[in-house]
Each structure stands twice: as structure tokens, then as C-alpha cells.
């Protein structure tokens, strides 16, 4: 435990020195001739960083991800991505036509060839071993999301981009899913850019939270954002209770040391950092 702050500090220095993986400057996005959905977005993410985007429905979160990945063009500003950036992407929606026969193993091989052993180990890694022969159409919601995550990991990404990856999961499923993402991230060291409404769950794990509503309302550490008036105005006051509730569950699941303060924000101080609590 005692080494954790030093490691975290060293990591932070290394990140600040690294070139960003993605940088956006003054980006606006409009669909057709309509009013821009996003405007004036400045953003960057560095190797290993965890950034979470929150915002109400229709606030442009998915569009933000699509814009920084270059899947939708910017009507103003510019987006820069590291050359040959390997992206693992979990889209918000993935509808499979029942007439398309597709096993889980074949789905993991959709974007790149993958040896059998790798398919098995990826599925085991995301907690759904043995599904390789199953048809994608027969998976439960939780299994499906984990297989999507495995697919995103298959290309050995430098950055994971997750668009509401916990939709359709129940409360404990959501917490477990985020723990999985954090564990995977620690192993492979990729950056994580995710979108969520599950504010209370995500916030604790993030280096930085971006609160979005057509533009960036506020951003910063989870603690700063959850106390920002812009954030409170957007999400109301109820979220503070949810935040505390989740952290209680979370600490409980992970058996933090007796000195832990249940009401503290994980991202706020290095001594209570998430990574410190999990490492062993």
C-alpha cells in the first residue's frame, strides 16, 4: 500500500510527458444543416489516462466519441490522433440480424485474425470463459457486453473507447463491469475513454470527468466535478447521495483497510486511490 502514492505520482509524471493519443481543438460537429450538436470542444487524452464523459441523454456524448475517433467529421476545429493508433471500441448499440449466423469466436475475429488460444484467453479474461462456440444471439445482456469488451481488447488497443458499456446491467453487474475494466486497464496499460450515465459508479475510477451538454460544461477530477455548480445544475442534487451509496458498496466489496473513510472520494487523494485498494 505504501508504494502506491509514489507509483501514482511517477505515472502521472510519465503521462504528462507522453504525447497525447488524441487531441481535439475547438471542434464542432453538426449533422446535416441542423444546429451543431457539439461546439467548441477542446480535449486531449494521454496514454493510460481514464477519462469519463457524463451528460444527459442527447447531450452529444456518443457524437463526442465518434468525433474524436474520426468517425464523424468536424464542421469546425480539428482532431489529431497518434499515427496508427489502435482503438478498441464498444459502440452504444449493436443490433445483430438473427439471419446472420455468428459465433462468439467468429465475432472476436471480426476485425483481425486471432488464434484459438487468444480467443479462449480473452473470453476468460472478461469473465465469460467457454462461450466461444455460442451463437451471439443467445447471449444474456451481461454476457453480450463482456463479449463486446473482449472484441474491443482483441486488437491490443492503446485506447479503449466505451459508449455506455454497462447498459442493461443491474447495479451489481455495473459495479463488477467497471471493476473488470479497471483490472484490464491495469494489465495492459491502455487509456480508457468512456461515456456513462452511471455517474456514481464511474466517477471513483476516473482521472478526469468531462461534463458535457453540447459543450464542455466543466471538467476535472471526479471530486471537483461533482461539486461544480454546472454539474449540479445539470444533474440535480440527488447524485451526491448516489455517489456516497455506491462508494459504500464499493469499499465493502473490496475490503479496504480499516482506515478507509467511506465517504471519501477515491479519485481525490492518492492514499485512497482505486489502484491502491485492488493491487493485492
Amino acid at each position: 500500500m505504501s508504494a502506491a502514492p509514489a507509483v501514482a505520482a511517477r505515472d502521472a509524471v510519465a503521462r504528462a510527458e507522453a504525447e497525447p493519443l488524441i487531441r481535439a481543438e475547438g471542434v464542432s460537429v453538426a449533422y446535416g444543416k441542423a444546429q451543431p450538436v457539439l461546439s467548441g470542444i477542446d480535449f486531449e487524452i494521454r496514454p493510460g489516462e481514464i477519462v469519463t464523459v457524463v451528460g444527459p441523454n442527447g447531450s452529444g456524448k456518443s457524437t463526442f466519441l465518434r468525433a474524436v475517433l474520426g468517425m464523424v467529421g468536424a464542421s469546425a476545429g480539428r482532431v489529431w490522433r497518434a499515427p496508427k493508433l489502435r482503438v478498441g471500441y464498444v459502440p452504444q448499440r449493436l443490433h445483430l440480424d438473427p439471419n446472420l449466423p455468428l459465433t462468439v469466436a467468429r465475432f472476436l475475429r471480426l476485425l483481425q485474425p486471432l488464434p484459438d488460444a487468444e480467443v479462449l484467453s480473452l473470453l476468460a479474461r472478461v469473465g465469460v470463459p467457454g462461450l466461444e462456440g455460442r451463437s451471439m444471439g443467445t447471449l444474456s445482456g451481461g454476457q453480450f457486453q463482456r463479449v463486446l469488451l473482449a472484441q474491443a481488447l482483441a486488437g491490443r488497443p492503446q485506447i479503449l473507447v466505451l459508449d455506455e458499456p454497462t447498459q442493461g446491467l443491474d447495479q451489481s453487474g455495473i459495479a463488477a463491469f467497471y471493476r473488470l475494466i479497471e483490472a484490464v486497464r491495469r494489465e495492459i496499460g491502455c487509456a480508457v475513454l468512456s461515456v456513462s450515465h452511471d455517474l456514481h459508479v464511474v466517477m471513483s475510477a476516473s482521472d478526469r470527468v468531462i461534463c458535457l451538454n453540447g459543450h464542455i460544461c466543466c471538467q476535472g477530477t471526479p471530486h471537483v466535478v461533482s461539486n461544480a455548480p454546472e454539474y449540479r445544475a445539470l444533474f440535480g442534487l440527488g447524485t451526491q447521495g448516489a455517489l456516497a451509496l455506491y462508494q459504500h458498496n464499493h469499499d465493502h466489496n473490496h475490503e479496504h483497510g480499516p482506515g478507509d473513510d467511506h465517504l471519501s472520494d477515491h479519485g481525490q487523494s492518492p492514499t485512497h486511490s482505486h489502484e491502491g485498494g485492488h493491487d493485492r
Binding site: M71, G88, L94, L96, L110, Q112
Partner: peptide
């Protein structure tokens, strides 16, 4: 065909 989004990300 399976996902335009996924295809685009690659």
C-alpha cells in the same frame, strides 16, 4: 454489416 460503428473504428 455487423456494425458500421465497429467497422469504422477499425
Amino acid at each position: 454489416t455487423i456494425s458500421e460503428d465497429l467497422a469504422q473504428s477499425a
